[in-house]
Simulated assay, not measured.
Amino acid sequence: MWGYPEPIGRLVEQFMKLPSIGPKTATRLAFHVLSMSSEDVEGFAKALHDVKHNLTECAICCNITEKTPCSICADASRDDKVLCVVQDPKDVMAMERTHEFNGKYHVLHGAISPMEGVGPNDVRIRELVQRIGTNEEISEIIIATNPNVEGEATAMYISRLLKPFPVRVTRIAHGLPVGGDLEYADEVTLAKALEGRRQI
């Protein structure tokens, strides 16, 4: 590939499989690996192997974990009554960084997107409904899907599905970021900000 020795060419091709990595960045990364020590390269390879082979899904919340139940589901100090529904495992990490949420999670592993052929059965909605149906302690579901078309469609679908259950379904607020200016905000963001207004 591109006149490089075959091992470098193969490594460049592998890096290009990663999101937003083009040929130039992939080549730079491949040559960086070449300059790393053998121990660092072996550590990198082991980390890749472990991520693929040593992780599983939590039997309760569907988050990625080394053992099931995950540490959040097993934590007795967390509020069992409030469940935050997120699209991806990385969203759990984002919520945890705020140190504001002390409930538990449910990870959907995607969002409903008919354009991409992703329906309700392709994400973990069935598991969410089963979880709510078998756990009478849950009193509130916070839907924290992304503020885009797919996230909104998923939130609406879940809220309709949960109508028969005696739980309060809420949606995280969307709107202007802290430090943002009104003049630079798009119409949808401003509409969401007005929708989510609160008394001060």
Score class of each variant (00 low, 15 high):
residue 137 E to W: 08
residue 165 F to N: 11
residue 67 K to S: 12
residue 131 R to E: 06
residue 66 E to P: 02
residue 157 Y to D: 01
residue 141 I to N: 08
residue 135 N to Q: 08
residue 45 A to V: 13
residue 86 V to Q: 03
residue 85 V to T: 07
residue 141 I to V: 14
residue 95 M to I: 06
residue 76 A to Q: 14
residue 123 V to T: 01
residue 45 A to E: 03
residue 106 H to V: 04
residue 127 E to S: 08
residue 167 V to Y: 13
residue 122 D to N: 15
residue 88 D to V: 04
residue 110 G to Y: 09
residue 125 I to H: 06
residue 111 A to H: 02
residue 166 P to L: 14
residue 159 S to L: 00
residue 100 E to H: 10
residue 143 I to N: 03
residue 95 M to F: 14
residue 118 V to H: 13
residue 103 G to M: 04
residue 84 C to Q: 00
residue 80 D to Y: 12
residue 95 M to C: 07
residue 152 E to D: 12
residue 114 P to R: 07
residue 163 K to I: 09
residue 33 V to L: 15
residue 107 V to K: 02
residue 33 V to S: 12
residue 109 H to L: 00
residue 112 I to M: 03
residue 90 K to I: 00
residue 40 D to N: 15
residue 83 L to M: 14
residue 36 M to Y: 10
residue 109 H to G: 01
residue 169 V to T: 14
residue 79 D to S: 13
residue 60 I to D: 01
residue 37 S to I: 11
residue 74 A to K: 05
residue 140 E to G: 09
residue 92 V to K: 08
residue 160 R to Q: 15
residue 170 T to Q: 04
residue 145 T to N: 05
residue 147 P to V: 06
residue 31 F to V: 08
residue 99 H to N: 11
residue 40 D to R: 15
residue 51 V to L: 15
residue 93 M to L: 10
residue 97 R to K: 14
residue 89 P to V: 05
residue 103 G to R: 01
residue 64 I to A: 07
residue 160 R to K: 15
residue 151 G to N: 00
residue 108 L to F: 07
residue 40 D to P: 07
residue 154 T to E: 07
residue 32 H to M: 14
residue 149 V to G: 10
residue 80 D to S: 14
residue 159 S to H: 06
residue 129 V to W: 01
residue 44 F to H: 14
residue 149 V to L: 13
residue 121 N to E: 13
residue 163 K to N: 04
residue 49 H to T: 13
residue 140 E to W: 09
residue 94 A to D: 08
residue 146 N to L: 04
residue 73 C to R: 01
residue 72 I to W: 03
residue 157 Y to F: 12
residue 128 L to D: 04
residue 70 C to L: 00
residue 67 K to R: 15
residue 50 D to E: 12
residue 39 E to Y: 11
residue 158 I to K: 01
residue 119 G to N: 06
residue 56 T to C: 06
residue 67 K to F: 08
residue 70 C to R: 02
residue 169 V to I: 11
residue 146 N to Y: 01
residue 124 R to L: 01
residue 112 I to T: 05
residue 76 A to D: 15
residue 62 C to K: 10
residue 71 S to A: 09
residue 147 P to R: 04
residue 70 C to D: 03
residue 67 K to D: 04
residue 152 E to K: 12
residue 78 R to T: 02
residue 151 G to F: 05
residue 93 M to E: 05
residue 59 A to I: 04
residue 156 M to P: 03
residue 160 R to L: 10
residue 43 G to A: 14
residue 91 D to F: 10
residue 114 P to G: 11
residue 137 E to S: 14
residue 86 V to A: 07
residue 69 P to E: 09
residue 44 F to K: 12
residue 137 E to H: 12
residue 84 C to P: 00
residue 134 T to V: 06
residue 105 Y to W: 01
residue 41 V to C: 15
residue 37 S to C: 11
residue 46 K to A: 15
residue 49 H to E: 15
residue 61 C to P: 04
residue 52 K to Y: 09
residue 99 H to F: 11
residue 114 P to F: 13
residue 126 R to C: 00
residue 54 N to Y: 05
residue 85 V to D: 06
residue 126 R to Y: 02
residue 45 A to S: 14
residue 74 A to D: 08
residue 78 R to A: 10
residue 130 Q to E: 05
residue 107 V to A: 04
residue 59 A to H: 05
residue 45 A to W: 05
residue 70 C to Q: 03
residue 117 G to E: 03
residue 57 E to M: 05
residue 167 V to F: 12
residue 76 A to R: 12
residue 134 T to W: 02
residue 152 E to H: 10
residue 86 V to F: 06
residue 76 A to P: 11
residue 160 R to W: 01
residue 92 V to L: 05
residue 80 D to N: 13
residue 144 A to Y: 02
residue 107 V to N: 02
residue 99 H to V: 09
